[in-house]
């Protein structure tokens, strides 16, 4: 057995010598073409949420900017570091990590490859204790989700106040995925704005503990609806689509998240937007243009990366005016939705 193992080591050594010529550069491609690698989190590409949107942004960049783009889906958290390292070690110009969960992995790999650009949606390159390492080659693509959350929250609050809910119970709900900052930002804005518009409102907040399985969000939403909630805001990616459909079945209203989700169910009256595709595209463009900058890039109403879109509903004009007014105030900085869920 020992001999066999030595044999394998020898073989590996030979393989290394052959490959050593390649090094970190990329002689196989033309010097000009920029290579971008996208590593998804465990939600996978068809998560109907930010992995998907990131992919949309990458596709747009491939079409518009003529870059080469590759993707690796992470099947589990063990794979973040190797998948990021894979792209970095092959001399990709930009390695995109998608999702909050990947922060320490980005921090680790970006430290090892200072000449490779990194970008991470919903986070930064951190150490194991989630302290931002402030690496110059890492772009943090952060969103003010609370802004989008506040806009749909205001909508729900207004409608309840005006007695336009299905039974006008003054109860609304939010179904989160896992209780983590990007999710809670949305819910914080939602609750804050709803209460601002309708002080008598009760906001039920539940978590499905999942970002992909619609069944789980459906059952949380059903519970909230059973407890008289009339608007369901899903903040759980693909899982949340189950919440939207549960709302549809129970003939109450719902709000989509991240992307425009009006097609998911007729009950969706609006979607709170988080334009991950815009962020990804912007980041890639900055590398192509040679204007890449490390550190935080904040996407918000300011740069039109958050907001809302109206879906399957004729919103009363006064409500729309109120919501747009709120958006303007937030944009102007006169009102600031909280990042943490208010009590």
């Amino acid at each position: 057995m020992v001999h066999k193992r030595l044999g394998i080591l020898g073989l590996a050594a030979v393989a290394l010598m052959i490959a050593a010529a390649c090094g970190g550069s990329s002689p196989g491609t033309t010097a000009k073409q920029i290579k971008v690698g996208l590593v998804t989190d465990t939600g996978g590409l068809n998560d109907k949420s930010f992995n998907h949107l990131a992919y949309v942004g990458l596709q747009k960049a491939i079409a518009d900017l003529g870059i080469k783009g590759d993707v690796i889906e992470s099947k589990n958290g063990d794979e973040y570091v190797p998948n990021l390292t894979n792209f970095a070690s092959k001399g990709y110009d930009l390695v995109l990590g998608n999702g909050f969960l990947m922060q320490p992995a980005i921090g680790t790999v970006a430290g090892q490859f200072p000449n490779v650009h990194f970008a991470i949606v919903d986070g930064a390159g951190t150490d194991a204790s989630f302290k931002d390492l402030k690496l110059p080659n890492v772009q943090d693509l952060l969103f003010k989700e609370q802004e989008s959350g506040a806009l749909v929250g205001a909508m729900a609050g207004m409608l309840e106040k005006q007695g336009k809910g299905p039974a006008n119970t003054h109860v609304i709900g939010a179904v989160g995925g896992i209780s983590i900052p990007p999710v809670n930002h949305y819910i914080a804005g939602y609750k804050w704005a709803a209460a601002m518009e309708d002080p008598s409102i009760k906001v039920l907040v539940g978590y499905s503990n999942d970002f992909s399985d619609p069944t789980k969000c459906s059952s949380v939403a059903k519970s909230q609806i059973g407890n008289k909630a009339e608007f369901i805001f899903q903040v759980a990616g693909g899982c949340g689509l189950g919440a939207l459909q549960a709302a549809g079945q129970a003939k109450v209203y719902s709000f989509g998240v991240d992307a425009d989700q009006k097609d998911a169910d007729p009950s969706v009256i609006a979607s709170a937007l988080k334009k991950v595709d815009v962020a990804v595209y912007t980041s890639i463009k900055s590398v192509v243009n040679g204007k890449f900058q490390g550190g935080e890039t904040r996407f918000s109403l300011q740069n039109d990366a958050t907001g809302y879109t109206l879906d399957n509903f004729n919103l009363p004009a006064d409500v729309k005016a109120e919501v747009d007014g709120l958006a303007a105030k937030i944009k102007a900085g006169t009102l600031t939705p909280p990042a943490d869920i208010p009590a």
Partner: peptide, 15 residues
């Protein structure tokens, strides 16, 4: 599960 509750398929949805 898929066409009664979830109305879509997600990987490993049987969980």
């Amino acid at each position: 599960l898929a066409i009664g509750v979830s109305n879509t398929f997600v990987p490993n949805m049987t969980d």
